[in-house]
Amino acid sequence: MNLIDYFLSKRKKTAVVAKERLQIILARERVDRTGPDYLPALKRELLEVVAKYVAIDVDKVQVNLQHDGDCEILELNIALPEAPSTQPQAQLASQ
């Protein structure tokens, strides 16, 4: 890489991109791994309840368990298809 390239390049180096992507995905997968055993079943049953009332696309559902100090926050994000109501997203947070 010569000097001109150096001053012209505005794009982030791919190694930096790789590291950032890995930091995010590894953090997420570690949470899945170390999360409580009941989490997968809880996710599934919650979704079944919602699916009873609303036609949801399972791919458009996000379930996250976050740690914030001593609190654990379970966040359920469901994109409702063509929702007629004013709220396009339902959010459920429990502590």
Binding site: T14, A18, Q23
Partner: peptide
């Protein structure tokens, strides 16, 4: 390639 920013460095992999 690490020097050129094309490859994760030893430190990057260790940090991860």
């Amino acid at each position: 390639r690490v020097e050129a920013g094309e490859m994760l460095s030893v430190k990057d992999v260790q940090d991860l």
